[in-house]
Amino acid sequence: MNVLADTWDHLLDPTSWRGGGGMLALLVEQLLLTVTALAAATVVGLPIALALGHRGRGGFLAINVSNIGRAVPTFALLAVLVAADWPGTAQLGPYGRAGLATLIALTLFGLPPIITAAYVAVREVPREVTEAARGMGMTGWQVFRRAELPLALPLVVSGLRLALVQVWATATIAALVAGPGLGRVITDGFAANDYGKGIAGAVVVAVVALCLETGSALVQRAVDPQRRARSRTVGEDVPPTVTEAPGTTGRRATGDTAAPDTRGSAAGHRR
């Protein structure tokens, strides 16, 4: 259990946090990478997925992109990008060594959960709701904006949460190809047989991952429009579709963290 004592020492030692290669700088670097890649994946993936969901087309692609993403090892894609002539290991501003290669890989691995969740979210909106909206004379855009999007939002957001966790995990693996981020503490520690340091890095990475997950869960709760609608209409007569939808989406939101595509196929059964 000597290793655990080393870990503890490394975590408490202020010098392991300070400086250029210190854990604080690497933590900031990795958070920056995660946020940038998540933003890029959202900007690229979300409009496509929502449009596909609205039109009800490309479902095969939207569901299977997650399956493909799961089969390609993060490590392998990072390795190929780093060994290629472009993007290679070039330094990229605050993103560190092999910054561009890492950002590309992170964005690619952030896309599948966002696309699958957003597509399924729009498809899961009850047919009666969209038909009623159309019957009221709404245009396609209005149906999407006023009926589908609000009902789909909880599941869309849980897709973003899943992407956040995944991107953070991928950013850690970047260290295996000598890329940027906190994973470096782990790989450096292991390469130098300084296991205390490696485990200390792992503890920090894991704690931040749990904080990101819990934090994003709280944000999701705070911005859930149906939750707010429910608290506003307490004691009033709420239309049945509205009371029903949060229950189903809520259950699916908890299910999707682990197995997005079983949920996708379950969705297929229900339709």
């Binding site: 259990m1 290793v3 655990l4 870990t7 966790v165 953070w168 995990a169 991928t170 850690t172 693996i173 260290a175 295996l176 994973g183 782990i186 790989t187 520690g189 292991f190 296991y195 490696g198 485990i199 890095g201 792992a202 503890v203 990475v205 894991a206 991952a209 749990l210 990101l212 997950e213 908890t254 963290t257 682990a258």
Partner: peptide, 22 residues
């Protein structure tokens, strides 16, 4: 069980291996 497993799933693999090392 579901809460613990969600938490576990959140931890990146590169960080989970070292945690088993001791």
């Amino acid at each position: 069980v579901l809460a613990v497993s969600t938490g576990l799933y959140t931890i990146p693999s590169l960080a989970l291996f070292p945690l088993f090392l001791p």
